[in-house]
Simulated scan of single mutants.
Amino acid sequence: MPTIEKTIDVKVPVNIAYNQWTQFETFPNFMDSVVNVKQLDDRHVWWLAQIGGKAVEWEAEITEQVPDDHIAWRSVSGIRNTGVVSFQHVDVHSTRVRLEIEYETDTVAETAASMMGVLELKISEDLERYRQLLESRKAPAGGWRGHIPSDADNALRH
């Protein structure tokens, strides 16, 4: 599966960058291909996107979430993908956001787009809109501060 890794610095504290990312239903505001997102429960999120002129949906499960540090996920239906977004303190007013997504292409057109860097460019543009959204806000957005332990953490406790 192809992997895309992108990093962007945003001029907001870590907690604000993290809090915004936990507001999954706002993703259509900065992710161009995302049409709709619904938070089903603390661990599950339903996505609808427009990819290559085709409506695509999937459900993702959050596999680990540590406030102000990272959120990891994997798809449990639809398009196969996994990823992690991490938040690194740069200074009191800046955060480095690193996004890594691994995804499966299911058509020749998607494979070609991936090879030509089209998806990588789209993700860069989405992250730039995320940065602009955060930096233009006058007040921080809400956020979910819950902790979701990894499957490995759960196994160690039993």
Rank of each mutant, 00 (worst) to 15 (best):
T107M: 06
E110A: 12
E100L: 12
E135C: 02
V97I: 06
M1R: 08
M1I: 07
I101W: 06
Y18H: 07
E104D: 11
R145T: 01
V118S: 06
T3P: 04
V97A: 02
E128M: 10
V76A: 09
Y130M: 02
V108H: 08
A152I: 10
T7P: 08
E61Q: 12
V10P: 00
T22A: 03
A72E: 12
Y130F: 13
I101F: 05
T3I: 12
D68Q: 15
R129I: 02
R43N: 12
F24C: 11
R74F: 08
W46M: 03
D41E: 10
E57D: 14
Q20K: 14
A72I: 04
V56A: 03
M115T: 05
E57T: 11
S33T: 14
L156N: 14
V10H: 00
W47Y: 12
L133H: 08
V34C: 13
V118E: 03
M116K: 04
P13V: 00
R131W: 11
P28N: 15
L99I: 06
Q132W: 05
Q88M: 13
N19A: 14
I8R: 13
T22G: 05
T82W: 09
Q65M: 14
D32E: 15
N29M: 14
Q20F: 13
S75C: 07
T63H: 06
Q65F: 09
K138G: 13
V45C: 04
L48N: 08
D32K: 12
P13N: 09
V14K: 09
P149K: 07
A17F: 01
T105Y: 02
D126H: 03
E128T: 12
R74S: 12
E120R: 13
N81K: 11
E59F: 04
M116E: 07
G83K: 03
T63N: 07
Y18V: 01
T111Y: 08
Q50F: 05
A139D: 14
K11P: 03
L40W: 13
E125L: 15
E64Q: 15
K122G: 11
I16T: 07
D9M: 05
V45T: 14
D32F: 09
S150C: 04
K54W: 09
Q132V: 13
W73H: 02
P13K: 00
A72M: 09
E104F: 04
L48E: 15
R98H: 05
W21Y: 14
F24K: 07
D32L: 08
T111D: 06
P2T: 01
R145S: 06
N19D: 14
V56T: 14
P28F: 12
T22R: 03
A155D: 05
E59T: 15
H158F: 09
L134C: 03
W58G: 00
T95M: 00
I123V: 15
G53Y: 10
D126Y: 06
G78A: 01
Q20W: 11
W58E: 02
G146E: 10
E59V: 15
T107F: 03
V37Y: 04
E104L: 06
A17I: 00
M115D: 09
F24R: 03
V92H: 13
W47S: 00
Y18L: 01
D106Y: 11
V97Q: 03
Q39N: 12
E135I: 02
